[in-house]
Amino acid sequence: MAFKEYRLGSAMVGGALGLSMIITIFMPSFDLRSAVSTKMALEKQLSAGFDVGFGYADPLLLGINRPLTVVLDADPKTGAKFDPPVTAYIYKPGVPMPPNVRHPHDLGKGVEDLSEGLGQIGSVSGSNHSVGQREGVVFTIGLGEFDGEEVSYIENATATRGWTPDATLAAAGDKNTFKISQGKTEFVVQGCWWCHTLLPEQTQDWQVFGAPPYLGDFNGENPTAFGSDRKAPDLLHVGSRNSSREWMLLHFFNPRLVQVNSIMPRFDYLWGEKDAQGNVIDYDKWRAEYLEYANGKRVYPPEVPDYAPDSEIRALIDWVLSLK
């Protein structure tokens, strides 16, 4: 065997695969990294936090160590009224910093500069992210000017305004607290994305499901969970089409209460054992009564129980309604 064909062959396979990876991974990375975060991207990543899928802080995806989104009518420190209300993102001690606070470079030109300058995220970003994780931080989204253009940036409200996580949470109250991060985890864990996409397509989809996203709308989002197999409406802008919490409540408990032909599974198990009043939910009774209703033996379906404040369904609805 004078001619070692496998030597030449191995080199050629390596060369071909390497060239293909240069074109399909290395070259696009310049375009993708130059994306500048939009306001939508900042809202999404601050409300979702570091890992929505599997991660160290929540390996079993139970919704622990998650940021909370609150809407504030008044400044938690000075008590001054806000009009319009201000949205804040509370990272209690132990919650990992959001992805682009850890890596501010990925925010993109302008947003990075303003976040580090006006927003003062430097004390909790980059190599300091463990400080933020240890002590807890409250973020808001600020609006500034960079190169003559309006730019939204991340503001470390703990540094700029002295808001602490506990005081901010107390000022907002449970009614104005939204578990958006845990809700997106529910979206991933319960497999909603096997049927509902998060990507209106560049077709007449625009008319029904809203505009397709821009390049900078995803910075800091992980996983993006676009979905590929659409068996149900796109959800990227669902909160703009339907913002009724009561409708969501009925629809999640049993979709056929509001849409008889729906093929969506029932998500009644996300209510857990007890309802809002602390009474045990009798699922067997509910299902038996619903069956009578479906068979025409009852005029009205049974009442859907209110969810408890710590139920999983609350988080999921919070997230769905946040998709504006």
């Binding site: 991974i25 696009p28 990375s29 993708l32 990294r33 994306a35 991207a41 990543q45 570091f50 890992d51 992805p99 682009n100 850890r102 990925d106 390049l215 995803f218 910075n219 800091g220 989002e221 992980n222 996983p223 993006t224 676009f226």
Partner: peptide, 12 residues
């Protein structure tokens, strides 16, 4: 490596 956004979607 905790890549996010379109980089994550594209690599998926």
């Amino acid at each position: 490596f905790h890549l996010t956004g379109l980089s994550e979607a594209y690599l998926t």
